[in-house]
Design a protein around this nucleic acid. Structure first.
Lengths: 333, 333
DNA sequence: GCCCCCTTTGCATTCGAAGTCATTTTGGCT
DNA sequence: AGCCAAAATGACTTCGAATGCAAAGGGGGC
């Protein structure tokens, strides 16, 4: 029936010490005698006392909160990232304030909420305009971008190398003798989407292939739609499809097999990007580039904490090599 | 180069009014003249002022934070739930503190962190012991359980009806003439898993069928493993598999087709539960019970807010009917 | 026994906003 | 102009914990 939870004063009274003593018992490295500590801990236990992180935050100017801003959680790829980030931050004593966007246009609204909580930092997997990034800079809130870079602005970021990854895929497909290439792109406003498509396109052109590009939206259905479009546009000559992510690759594979009645990889090779778990399912075994999620999240957290503790270090951009997963959805040379 | 962000005092000085006036401008329904409001808003804009939610929290005893505790985010089903919950809470002006568990045993650790932030409430999709639930009760923190109920303790909860759902699936399978039933259960400590399996088993027994039950772990791989086990145990007589979730159903379907070389649904019918998006993919079209996620999350948020505002209302348990999705993975009568 | 120094301890103040209360201003009406 | 109620405003206190500072305590060396 405790209406409000115990405060440090309550514990102090119970233990017969001052409020300061209680506070010190909960601040690592403070000077407290074993006797006092024991008394305080006993009283705290008794009253079910936990230091109020809100009050601590106001006094220390450190909220111990980090905002994670993710645009589309339903992307299949992000839940894994989110879980990793949360757990890694948790180990460091940092809590996660989650912001999930229904639409990219909601960013401004969300940022206002972020400022109100005086977060110590932010990890962002959503498109930010230079003005929005400047908002972080102005307020001295460190940011680490996940799988995107600051456009023109120097910002810390963690990315998976699209150029090398797509080149490996393209090289394999070309060596295996594929000739008519289609690319299924992501939505126009996706940074990674554009980067992957551009990387693939450039590599193909270096090897004198000229791909047809159609736009998808990173989801299963758009893989189906985009394949049909590519198939029509090439009058059925298409023999290799490069998708901006695994989910569209899977959609395309299903469409090829079930709607078009063709064989993958005999008639058509399909490759993706990400290495999400469904890509490894027996039915698909997508040839793809697996992002090193663990290393990337680890780096993102480390970089963020470093920048929280030393805000004036220059922002670093880290690029991680993806791993080529040779599946059964493509013939590679 | 603003080291610390502006406070209400800074704005007050800039606008030539008192700090109280500034505060009132940001509290809905407070009495402020248009002239003052304009001056304050201009100054706030100028200084980039946002009320400090941390400080507000300490004064009002309302953090505007809600904890969401989810055990396995990688479950495919939960990301959708999480995104919905976050967005719905956001609309209500409530922020989400996310806690994701690496293992169920971490709950106690996580709860300590939850108490420190004086959250206004919590939505929990993880197993809580009666003692842990009592922790919420003692501290007056309202909880809403998602897809589980308090064991012995009265707690607000939102669930999808397993009994009706499984009965519909079983009835359909039996009517279609299936005779040898296998059930792929979830992990032993999963509430929904057990409930679904029990519901299916009871219904089967009412119809004089006696299923073989093997345990899975809610993931793709365990669908494969469990199918093989069922197949062996029935010497290949098995003709219907009921899975505790869609992911295992998908794993089983792939295993049946690719490893065993049999046809779904001609040789074997497979049904699942949840209605996750891969279940609708062309290759699977799993016959399943779709949880009404939107209605369930809406209810969870509404119930939580109600209990935050009127903590003494009796906790309500709401059960939502799932929708039978008739796919192509099973022959139903 | 005395002195000095290092460890503990408590007092008082601080963080930023919200709300209480008393006071001032405003506006409507006679 | 004068009066009164209502609206607007500011001074001050409060929320809970952390911390600078001064004072008290404890232990060792001589």
């Amino acid at each position: 029936m405790t209406r409000r939870s115990a405060t440090s004063y309550d514990v102090a009274r119970e233990a017969g010490v001052s409020q300061s003593a209680v506070s010190r018992c909960f601040s690592p490295g403070a000077s407290v005698s074993p006797r006092t500590r024991a008394k305080v801990m006993a009283a705290a236990q008794e009253l079910g006392y936990h230091p109020n992180a809100i009050a601590r935050g106001i006094r220390t100017q450190r909220s111990n909160l980090v905002a994670i801003i993710i645009s589309n959680l339903t992307n299949l790829y992000y839940p894994e990232v989110l879980a990793e980030l949360t757990q890694r931050l948790s180990v460091q004593g940092i809590r996660v304030l989650l912001f999930s966007l229904a639409a990219e246009s909601d960013v401004d609204e969300v940022l206002d909420q972020v400022w109100e909580f005086r977060v110590d930092g932010a990890i962002v997997a959503a498109r930010l305009s230079p003005a929005q990034l400047a908002g972080f800079e102005d307020r001295g809130v460190p940011v680490v971008l996940y799988n995107r870079v600051g456009e023109g602005v120097p910002v810390a970021s963690v990315c998976c190398d699209s150029v090398t990854g797509e080149s490996a895929l393209v090289d394999g497909l070309v060596e295996a003798g594929h000739s008519v290439f289609g690319i299924i792109a992501g939505p126009a406003d996706s940074y990674v989407g554009n980067e992957r498509v551009e990387s693939a396109r450039r590599r193909l052109q270096q090897l004198s292939r000229d791909p047809i590009i159609v736009r998808g939206s990173f989801d299963y259905e758009s893989g189906d739609r985009a394949f049909k479009e590519l198939w029509r546009a090439t009058s059925g000559k298409l023999d290799a499809i490069i998708c901006a992510n695994d989910l569209m690759a899977i959609g395309a594979i299903d469409s090829i097999r079930i709607n078009a009645g063709l064989l993958v990889p005999q008639d058509l090779s399909v490759v993706g990007f990400d290495g999400v778990s469904p890509a490894r399912w027996l039915a698909y075994q997508v040839t793809t580039i697996r992002q090193p999620v663990r290393r990337m999240t680890e780096a993102a957290v480390a970089m963020l904490i470093e920048r929280i503790e030393a805000p004036d270090t220059t922002p670093e951009q880290r690029l991680f090599a993806g791993e080529l997963l040779t599946g059964a959805s493509a013939r590679l040379g």
